[in-house]
C-alpha cells in the first residue's frame, strides 16, 4: 500500500465542546492581526499576508484534492502583471485593478486546469510547470510586461476613490480584509459538500467515480478556485509593492509556495499561512547575511520531505489527535 502525500491533513482535532475554544482562538488571532502593524513593519506583514493567501490557495489543491501544481506562479504573477498594467496604464482604481488581475487568473486557471487534469500525479506537476514556464516566456517577451524591468512604480491610488492607500496602515487593513476574505472562501469550500467530494477524490478517485461523481469537473472547479485566489494574492502583492516583475512568474516562485505549504502542513487550514510567515521571515533574515538563500530553502525542502512531512500545523494537530484518542 502506497502511503499518500495528503496524509498530513488527517487526524484533525475538532469535536464538539471545542467550538467555544475555537471562537476564542479566532478572536485572539484576529486581534493579533489587527494590532500587528503597530508592532511590526507593515510592508513585511503585508508581504506575509499576500504569500499566506497564495499558499492557502495552493493548499486547496495539494491538501484537499491531492493535485500538486508546480505552476502556481503563473496565476500569482499573471494577475500581478494585469493588475499593475490596468492600474498604471489604464488608470483604473485599485479595487478594479485587483479584480481584473484576479479575473485573468481565473481564466488562466480554467485553461490550465482543462489541459492539466488529463493527467495525474507526477505528470500533472510537470504539465503545470511547463505551462507556467510558457507564461514566464510570454511575460519576458510581450510588450506590455516591460521585459526584464517588469512594471514598476504602480500607483497605489485611492480605494473606491476614497481611502488613500499610500498610507501604509490603510494599505495594511485593505490587505488584511482581502486575506480574510480569501481565507474565508477557502474555509467555506473545504467544509462544504463540495469540499467533502474533493477529499473523497483525494483519498480514492476511482471510488468517487464509481459513486457517480464527475471527478474531472470537481477537480477543474477546485483548480479554478485555487488559481483565482492565487491571482487575488498576486494582484494584491503588485499593489502593495507597486511592482509586477519576472520574479513573480518564475518556477522558483512556484517552488516557494510548495515549500510554504509543505513546511506549514499540507491539508491543514492554517498550515500554509504559518509556512508563508516562516519562509518570508527567513528570506528577510537571510537577505542580511552572506548565506545563499536558495541553498537554505533547498535544505529545508529536503528535511521536510524526509522527516517532517506533516508540517508544523499538521504535526501539532497529529499530536493533539493522538492524545485525544
Amino acid at each position: 500500500m502506497v502511503t499518500d502525500i495528503r496524509d498530513g491533513g488527517r487526524g484533525a482535532v475538532g469535536t464538539a465542546g471545542t467550538s467555544w475554544l475555537r471562537l476564542v482562538a479566532g478572536a485572539v488571532l484576529l486581534l493579533v492581526l489587527l494590532t500587528a502593524p503597530l508592532v511590526l513593519y507593515p510592508i513585511f506583514l503585508m508581504k506575509v499576508l499576500c504569500f499566506a493567501l497564495f499558499a492557502c490557495a495552493f493548499n486547496l489543491l495539494i491538501g484537499y484534492v491531492g493535485l500538486l501544481s508546480f505552476g502556481h506562479a503563473a496565476f500569482f504573477g499573471g494577475a500581478a502583471y494585469v493588475s499593475a498594467h490596468a492600474i498604471k496604464v489604464w488608470g483604473v482604481t485599485p479595487e478594479i485593478g485587483i479584480l481584473l488581475g484576479t479575473a485573468t487568473a481565473a481564466v488562466m486557471g480554467g485553461v490550465f486546469g482543462w489541459i492539466a487534469i488529463r493527467r495525474q500525479g507526477i505528470y500533472f506537476a510537470m504539465i503545470t510547470l511547463a505551462l507556467a514556464q510558457m507564461i514566464y516566456f510570454l511575460a519576458l517577451q510581450l510588450p506590455f510586461t516591460g521585459g526584464e524591468d517588469g512594471i514598476q512604480a504602480v500607483p497605489r491610488g485611492h480605494l473606491f476613490g476614497l481611502i488613500n492607500l499610500n498610507n501604509s496602515l490603510a494599505m495594511y487593513y485593505t490587505v488584511l480584509v482581502i486575506f480574510l476574505f480569501g481565507f474565508a472562501v477557502i474555509r467555506r469550500a473545504v467544509h462544504s459538500p463540495f469540499g467533502q467530494v474533493l477529499k473523497a477524490i483525494r483519498e480514492n478517485e476511482p471510488r468517487a467515480v464509481s459513486l457517480g461523481y464527475r471527478t474531472d469537473q470537481y477537480k477543474l472547479v477546485a483548480f479554478v478556485l485555487s488559481a483565482t485566489l492565487a491571482g487575488l494574492a498576486g494582484a494584491t502583492k503588485a499593489l502593495v509593492f507597486q511592482l509586477a516583475s519576472l520574479t513573480d512568474v518564475t518556477w522558483q516562485m512556484s517552488g516557494e509556495v510548495v515549500l510554504m505549504t509543505l513546511l506549514g502542513g499540507m491539508g491543514t487550514l492554517f498550515g500554509p499561512a504559518v509556512g508563508a510567515a516562516l519562509v518570508v521571515t527567513l528570506q528577510n533574515y537571510l537577505a542580511a547575511t552572506q548565506l545563499p538563500v536558495t541553498v537554505v530553502i533547498g535544505a529545508i525542502f529536503v528535511i521536510c520531505v524526509l522527516v517532517f512531512r506533516r508540517g508544523i500545523v499538521g504535526e501539532i494537530a497529529h499530536r493533539l489527535g493522538v492524545r485525544k484518542a
Partner: peptide, 28 residues
C-alpha cells in the same frame, strides 16, 4: 530510498530541493 513507499510526488519534491541546493551552491 527512504521515499519509495510514499507517494511519488515526494520524490519530485525531494529532488527539487536537491536541485536548489546544488545550483545555489555553485551560484554562491
Amino acid at each position: 530510498r527512504w521515499l519509495y513507499k510514499l507517494d511519488h510526488l515526494y520524490g519530485l519534491l525531494l529532488t527539487f530541493g536537491l536541485a536548489l541546493i546544488i545550483e545555489g551552491m555553485f551560484r554562491h
